Amino acid sequence: MYSIIEQGGAQFKVSSGMKIRVPFFDAEAGTEFTIDRVLLAANGDDVKIGNPVVEGASVKAKVLEQEKGDKVLVVKKKRRKDYKRVNGHRQLYTKVEIISIDV
């Protein structure tokens, strides 16, 4: 059984026991929450497609930790003008474990 969910403006294909990294949201580690934005739910040949969401479907998940992604360097340069700037950025993510899928 799997489903496609929307969390933080991004879509993820998930199944029970899976660990995913979603865009950051403020929650303590160990907190359980419910995701109601289920776009598709499939159990073998039984596939339910939402318009835009599947009615009555939900996914239970648990926050594992808050983490930062890899550093991305942003470099600006203008030739012959002695202008150089380097800026770093690390995106924040929330690591989540999928507990169960209810359809």
Rank of each mutant, 00 (worst) to 15 (best):
L73E: 14
K81A: 04
V75R: 14
A57Y: 01
V38T: 07
S58E: 10
A61R: 04
S58Y: 12
K78S: 09
D70W: 03
R80W: 00
F24V: 07
K77E: 13
D36R: 15
P52S: 06
V75K: 14
K60C: 01
G44F: 05
I35Q: 04
R37I: 01
K78V: 07
A61Y: 00
T34C: 10
N51I: 01
F33Y: 15
E67C: 14
V54F: 02
L39M: 08
E65W: 00
L64H: 12
S58A: 10
F25S: 06
F24N: 10
L40T: 02
S58Q: 12
G44V: 01
D45F: 10
A42T: 03
G44P: 03
G50P: 02
A29V: 09
D36G: 08
F33Q: 04
L39T: 02
P23V: 01
A29I: 09
F33H: 05
K77I: 07
V72K: 15
E55K: 15
G69R: 06
L40I: 09
T31C: 04
E55D: 14
A29M: 09
E55G: 07
R37S: 15
L40N: 00
Q66F: 01
A41L: 07
E65A: 09
A27E: 05
N43P: 03
K62N: 12
K48T: 13
G56L: 04
A61F: 03
V47W: 03
A41Y: 08
L73M: 13
K76P: 00
F24H: 13
F24W: 14
K77T: 10
T34F: 09
K60M: 04
G50R: 00
K48G: 04
K77F: 15
L73G: 10
D46F: 06
K60R: 11
A29C: 11
L64K: 14
D26K: 15
E67Q: 13
K78C: 06
D46I: 05
K62L: 07
K48N: 11
P52V: 03
L39Q: 04
D70N: 13
P23R: 05
S58L: 07
F25N: 05
R80S: 07
S58P: 02
G69S: 11
R79F: 08
I35V: 12
L40S: 03
F24L: 09
F24G: 06
G30D: 11
D26M: 06
A27F: 00
K81Y: 01
G69E: 09
